[in-house]
């Protein structure tokens, strides 16, 4: 029959893709369905969507200007006009928390972005080339891991100087070791597969093999780690802001909101409770969603 031969010719180019990509294309809908059957994905996803929507429509949701001082309503408890009360300068706490979602998202995206770009690149290079490149990179990682996570971030902030931008860089850099280890480990197993050897044998350059053939097969681990690290990054940035090294007043960053609140925690506990709750919920959302993703995409994946 003539038909099959022409059809197989049309299908043929796709066969040059790695098996991972094809499996994923075929199964995206199935994976999503399995993901959202999990309770933790539903709750986590809802929190993330709520966060994104609040950040996008902050201007519409916030009843007041988050920076506007009002000497007439200082340290007011939650009321119908100020849902979450007001701070020591009379600013509306609800509006400040609403605008703070934007800072939170930027912090997560930038610090995870930095860690991911540096970590994935180094991880692929280390795993693919091996030898002295690998040895050198892994020794650098060993030195970074000789410092507890928060301390490494603090040391980098010490070098760069305090401020929100530097905090994001510091957190990003502190997260690199996790990425390098994960991606390097993945690459070590993937590079032995036939399709990688075939790509090399067909004359593909190293960069092409690494980024076109190997990288797509690590996507599921990358998505999982990025989601879970979004949570860690937000938590770390809030902690650094809380000790005065991250976002500076009058920024409505949630950790920074707690700095001022501390002095009034006995007279105005709502200033402590609400920003803290906001951080907790958002971090919980990313953790829940990340865990669900991990269980769905790769049940054998384990990250500490």
């Amino acid at each position: 029959m003539p038909a099959p031969s022409s059809r197989s010719a049309a299908v043929a180019p796709q066969d040059s893709e790695s098996p991972g990509i094809r499996a994923r294309r075929a199964g995206t809908a199935g994976i999503l369905a399995a993901l959202f059957r999990k309770r933790s994905a539903q709750i986590g996803g809802a929190i993330i969507v709520l966060l994104l929507a609040t950040a996008a429509f902050a201007g519409l949701l916030a009843p007041y200007d988050p920076y506007r001082l009002n000497p007439l309503s200082q340290l007011g408890p939650p009321s119908s006009s100020h849902w979450l009360g007001t701070d020591a300068l009379g600013r509306d706490e609800f509006s400040r928390i609403v605008y703070g979602t934007r800072t939170t998202l930027v912090i997560g995206a930038i610090s995870v972005g930095i860690a991911m770009v540096l970590g994935v690149t180094s991880g692929i290079v280390a795993g693919y080339y091996g030898g002295w490149v690998d040895l050198l990179l892994m020794r650098v990682i060993d030195v970074m891991l000789a410092l507890p996570y928060i301390l490494l971030a603090l040391a980098i902030v010490a070098i760069l100087g305090p401020g929100l931008g530097n905090t994001m860089i510091a957190i990003g850099l502190s997260n690199v070791p996790g990425w390098v280890r994960l991606v390097r480990g993945n690459v070590l197993t993937i590079r032995r597969h036939d399709f990688v050897l075939a790509a090399g044998a067909l004359g593909a350059r190293d960069t092409r093999v690494m980024f076109v053939h190997i990288l797509p097969n690590t996507v599921s681990s990358i998505v999982v780690l990025a989601t879970l690290q979004f949570a860690t990054a937000i938590l770390a940035a809030a902690a650094l802001s809380f000790v005065g090294l991250g976002a500076q007043p009058p920024s409505p960053e949630w950790g920074a909101l707690l700095v001022g609140a501390r002095d009034f925690m006995f007279t105005a506990p709502w200033l402590v409770n609400f920003p803290g709750l906001a951080i907790f919920l958002v971090v919980l959302g990313f953790n829940l969603f990340g865990n669900a993703l991990r269980d769905t995409l790769d049940p054998t994946l384990r990250m500490s």
Partner: peptide
Amino acid sequence: MFGLSMPGFWFGLI
């Protein structure tokens, strides 16, 4: 899950 997501400094203040 809560412990993983809890900001330590907030928990301390509480």
